[in-house]
Write a protein that binds this DNA or RNA. Sequence first.
DNA 1: ATATCACGGACTCTTGATATCCTTAATAAA
DNA 2: TTTATTAAGGATATCAAGAGTCCGTGATAT
Lengths: 133, 133
Amino acid sequence: MKYSNATNYALHTMVHLILQPRESLVGVQELAEMQHLSPTYLSKILTKLAKAGLIESTPGAKGGYKVSRTKHEISFLDVIHAIEGDTSLFDCSIHHEGCAIEKVMWQAEENMKSELNSKLLIDIAKEAESKQK
Amino acid sequence: MKYSNATNYALHTMVHLILQPRESLVGVQELAEMQHLSPTYLSKILTKLAKAGLIESTPGAKGGYKVSRTKHEISFLDVIHAIEGDTSLFDCSIHHEGCAIEKVMWQAEENMKSELNSKLLIDIAKEAESKQK
DNA sequence: ATATCACGGACTCTTGATATCCTTAATAAA
DNA sequence: TTTATTAAGGATATCAAGAGTCCGTGATAT
């Protein structure tokens, strides 16, 4: 059980975008090189982030991506949800209504999500910025 | 991102075993039928549980499985760990030491594990027992 | 001795994630 | 207007891991 690579890339990309000067655009090319990915592949991920409203894209020459206006409200959970979709980690295999095992698993997952929802990308970005030599 | 079916089956199997009278053995046959699985497949899962010390097996005729003596201390996390192994949900794709993103993800996972560690199978088993008509 | 059971290796099958290729559309600059 | 640049997206190929089966071995009660 692992988070997808896509989620990994998405999180790093988002942090990078948040560090950019306001309204400045970054192309897939640059974002891909930074993480040693092919532009076409990262493009798919960026499209998902855009569909979720976390970033905005401008097509054409000098185009690129920038974080949407809700910048200071974007949490880890937002990014993860944009990539992984809306599924629960566990579904009872026998499906008798109200499975007690399922309940426990869901509660545990909720605890994780709650933590991921309270952490904002902007906090991490600041930390990363102050670390740069 | 999903827990494996094996984990699902393992949890249900463990709860069933805990409900058995002390020291009585249950064969793979019965356990498999209960969950509509092939005995051979469930056997692999049971072997993992045994290797982790959660259950004990007796070979030969009239053999089978029973919960190990630590019965009242087995948590959800124990079972999950026995099946899924010891891996973290997230590993930074860029691997610069002490990645801030990774730290957040690990903390969140820790919150989930903490919950799963505090829930014991025996509690669920009692609940399931009282529900039976 | 025989039937029953757990154990484990090797193998197949399926599925979803990963990744690439190629075409289309939009925009800036020349 | 033409050209270069860039995002969007469909189709396809690749790959790894999980799911599940088959078969042979060994242990034990009857």
